[in-house]
Design a protein around this nucleic acid. Structure first.
Lengths: 351, 351
DNA sequence: CTGTTAGCGCCTTCAG
DNA sequence: CTGAAGGCGCTAACAG
């Protein structure tokens, strides 16, 4: 790609402490008082004279004093930063989640350190390590889809750093987590499709490492069984990437009794599946119907859309996870009671 | 929303320093050497005996030693963290950008502190302030759409914290920035539409505070003028939200000579505009055609899509911005030369 | 090759 | 009401 603009390179203008931040020591010496007085005045300590407080504050303002967070973190042993590890911010689900987390963090005067695992456990481990080194006060994580070992996270616990899982949660009894009950919703999705006359239903599922995969499958099979359609349930496992979605679609459409409806692991998979179906000459919502999970806004802009999508409440999940983490970091004086595992009900949304 | 799961609240299991992290002091005393020896050994300092180094490393490993980043940041006056301020992670454009930034940061052993302005200048100012307090080593920012004052950012410069702008850049001569030339691309977009026979073209633009708005408009008018279609150029300013997009569409479609093609500020606006058109009985790509900016993946999944979208290379822009920032933070020994403003060429992508 | 020491900025006991 | 002093963990002179 061509770079336009002025071709003459400027000499780097180096920003280097043109005005080094003032310290309490500086304020103290200018005012002829001690540093502890300044510290206390700035913290509105009860035992400091009103006049002194006033003077200190004015001087602080005049010198553009900013408390050095690095020093405070060091001294207090707390960074006032939480780490958030997500598979991928490009998925709407997770970018919505980060909004909730950021909101909760701001309310608690916390900042958010972010890391994307890109669904790669190796990378997830590295990120967690970096966050541990940075002494984050807590971690919120949604696991990479191939994460099958949780020692890197248990280690955080050993270092006194609380961990809260959300959505992509592990099967650990003693972990803090927030997730959605997809099993029941999956069954409801089947009920809906069957009530609309579908008998053969295809399912494009995710990788077996994910708990979300087995939950979806359980609910799906349970309902198909209940409707006496056990033999008409066609499941394809994929890694959730476009190529495998297309292969799964090819298999499904080539089945002896091809499905009239297809449930996809999530809306992205559904989009790809629908695209494939169109390419093969199928008319969406005439020859074949689709349903999926996540209920992302984009699906509302399709000309021929989904029959339904399962809402997984990313904002709600993340918000609860964040609030749980904040409670773990700073346990409230009164209520030391807290649900270790929260499970929200997912909801089938018709389109 | 109902919360399922075990209704009995567990008592909070408080994670509190079950194994407080080892320090170099601890290692030193156990080995009967001084802290500086340990420090040097861990940094692979040349003047330390091989045997000592070995011992220190073994002890460090045995004690699960982790350097305390907070202490290092404090001591060195650098946090090894960069701040990234974006309008909204929910837009694909920015979530792609953050990927590039994270990548570049990791390569330089940096971590990323994130903040979303939600296109609100007040919030942007707060975020920048928090980041300053946290002593980030540099900031990458894409401005909120209503930001018309940059003192909060110039202040960062005064504190020795370099700032690099990308995409939503200010009109400051001395600012570091990476952006796309949208003027030329806008003109090309018109050329394309005119070559396909369109004479009346509508434009749903953004708010005037944004430089991107005037750039689009300039290119659009320039080309319409060149084609002798100045009178057929219909421009509507909006705040980029759904409601105003719909109003803009209503105005355009009610014009004396209604447009046969409409250019939208970005793909999200285009989606909303197309939805409105469909609701009004227009057939996309028959009665009316659409083009826009950003070239997001979602547009590829539409049954009846865009004529074209202008690719703005979010990854490339963010990557260059990040690399520019890293150069400002740690100027390379040799080349102290650097382009202050980089402008990439945007590219019209036909669909 | 290794040890000693002085701080970085802030908070917090302990004494006035 | 205020001051003095110690120390958080680490680095980097300065001494041996």
């Amino acid at each position: 790609m061509a770079v336009c603009g002025d071709p003459r390179p400027f000499t780097v203008y180096i920003y280097r402490m043109m005005q080094k931040p003032a310290t309490i020591k500086e304020i103290a010496s200018r005012l002829g008082v001690s540093v502890s007085t300044v510290s206390r005045a700035l913290h509105d300590h009860p035992g400091i004279g009103l006049r002194t407080k006033q003077q200190v504050r004015e001087m602080a303002a005049a010198l553009n004093y900013e408390p050095n967070q690095a020093a405070i973190s060091f001294k207090r042993g707390r960074s006032f930063t939480i780490g958030v590890v997500l598979p991928n911010l490009r998925e709407d689900f997770f970018s919505i989640a980060i909004n909730a987390i950021e909101e909760e963090a701001i309310q608690n005067r916390y900042t958010v350190l972010i890391g994307q695992s890109h669904d790669d456990m190796t990378r997830e481990v590295q990120i967690v390590e970096t966050m541990r080194k940075h002494r984050v006060d807590g971690v919120i994580i949604s696991l990479a889809k191939d994460t099958d070992d949780h020692t890197h996270l248990q280690q955080l616990g050993e270092y006194g750093i609380p961990v809260v899982f959300f959505d992509r949660v592990p099967l650990l009894r003693d972990a803090f987590s927030v997730s959605c009950d997809l099993r029941h919703a999956s069954a409801q999705l089947v009920d809906l499709l069957v009530s609309r006359g579908h008998q053969s239903i295809g399912f494009i599922n995710g990788p077996v490492t994910m708990r979300a995969t087995s939950e979806r499958e359980a609910g799906f099979l349970e309902a198909m069984h209940r409707h006496g359609l056990k033999e008409r349930a066609l499941i394809q496992a994929t890694n959730l990437e476009a190529g495998q979605t297309r292969e799964a679609m090819a298999s499904l459409l080539a089945a002896r009794t091809p499905p009239t409806a297809i449930i996809a692991f999530n809306d992205y998979v559904a989009l790809e599946a629908m695209k494939y179906a169109r390419e093969q000459g199928y008319r969406i919502n005439k020859d074949i119907f689709f349903a999926s999970y996540a209920n992302l806004p984009i699906t509302g802009y399709l000309e021929e859309g989904l029959v339904a999508s399962v809402e997984q409440f990313p904002y709600e999940q993340a918000q609860r996870a964040a609030s749980m983490l904040m409670q773990l970091i700073q346990p409230p004086p009164g209520g030391e009671q807290l649900l270790r595992q929260q499970v929200l009900a997912a909801k089938v949304v018709m389109h």
